[in-house]
Design a protein around this nucleic acid. Structure first.
Lengths: 206, 206
DNA sequence: CCGGGCATCCACCGATCGGTGGAGCGGAGA
DNA sequence: TCTCCGCTCCACCGATCGGTGGATGCCCGG
């Protein structure tokens, strides 16, 4: 049986070096390519045809999620698999990554052995999920959904506009603005507008 | 001349591995210790007496800033020097690290050569600053500063507490809470509490 | 077909917030 | 030493917000 071929995508050189180092010591796993942004990773993947891609999410020159979506669309026989490896475990990041087609989601504080096991599991076709990601999936499935209008309103709230100003901006009545806000409060479990802004910001909704 | 002895402090095993790997290839620099939290790093530093400490800031088991403050207080002849190595370049993180006595501030997207040069500069007594950190220092010096009390209040606002509830929690009058908030509004250029929460969150103040 | 669920819309009231004006107190610099 | 500045503290008022109670139109599935 041949070695598992992987590509490492991360904007931080140190992290890339750390990852390649981890797998250099590991028999049966070869790092065959690196990239520092989502778009550039696609070329590397096309060239090297890896079994698993380790993908960071937030990168200055191009996010990881679109790259995952793209590589999933073009892969044959399920290769390569996409393993998200990120610092953050926010609702939105996890959802968008998994929706894009990621086969695994690990946090960067994972240990070396966890990481190696994740890569082997993925190469064998077993999906991998960090506890936080699993909790998100099992927990509230449709709870966090805010309507587009509610997000419009909340965004303006976060900019410091009053309800009346928001109403004018969106060409609706002030009462309507309040209704939207009250709905967001109950959906988010927020006590008031300030709390709602914090929660939304925390989850990356605005 | 003897090798530069360094200790690496970061909660992510991968990052630690990456850093030790970078310096393993580098003659004249020895990694003599590692730690995964601020408090635990102090013991390692006491044991190994390094010349330079590479310190992450945000760590679950204990932040880097208090550790820097502590090691600065106990060092002799300026050793060890503290080099902050973090993902974030927010106002507050940079300020608090430099106030604590850090001799250098680098972002994790630094290249290997930048990193090696930074360690050599620090060992030679030359301070090291990432462009972002330098900009912060040169720019607005006292503008973004919120008092500790103001941050206390704003944190509770972000949790959705009313002014009265905050007053009770902090054992002060509701009027005082409002005063603190009004001050934060003018300092941050915020229109109301929701806006202030957003700005603070954006800048990493809470 | 029709009823439930959802997004969107609106008016009124009590509670809360934003803003003004002011006071004491301690540290930094003249 | 004394002054100045910023942090902390407080009371009062008008403006705004949170909450209740409803209404409309739309889509989807029974």
């Amino acid at each position: 049986m041949s070695a598992v071929r992987i590509v490492v995508v991360d904007d931080h050189p140190i992290v890339r070096h750390g990852l390649t180092g981890v797998f250099a010591d590991e028999p049966g796993i070869d790092v065959v390519g690196e990239a520092d942004s989502g778009p550039r990773s696609l070329a590397v993947i096309a060239d090297t045809e890896p079994d698993v891609v380790l993908m960071d999410l937030r990168m200055p020159d191009g996010d990881g999620v679109p790259a995952i979506r793209e590589l999933v669309r073009h892969r044959t026989r399920g290769r390569p698999r996409a393993l998200v490896l990120t610092t953050y475990d926010t609702d939105r990041e996890i959802r968008s990554a998994l929706n894009a087609g990621a086969d695994g989601y690990l946090l960067k504080d994972a240990s070396r052995t966890e990481l190696v096991r994740a890569v082997r599991d993925l190469a064998a076709g077993r999906p991998v999920l960090a506890p936080a990601a699993l909790a998100i999936l099992l927990g509230h499935e449709s709870e966090t959904e805010l309507s587009t209008r509610e997000i419009d309103v909340l965004r303006l709230v976060a900019d410091g506009l009053t309800n009346k100003a928001i109403a004018t901006r969106l060409r609706i009545s002030e009462s309507t603005v309040k209704t939207h806000l009250l709905h967001t409060y109950s959906k988010l479990g927020a006590a008031d507008r300030a709390h709602a802004v914090r929660i939304c910001w925390e989850r990356g909704l605005i």
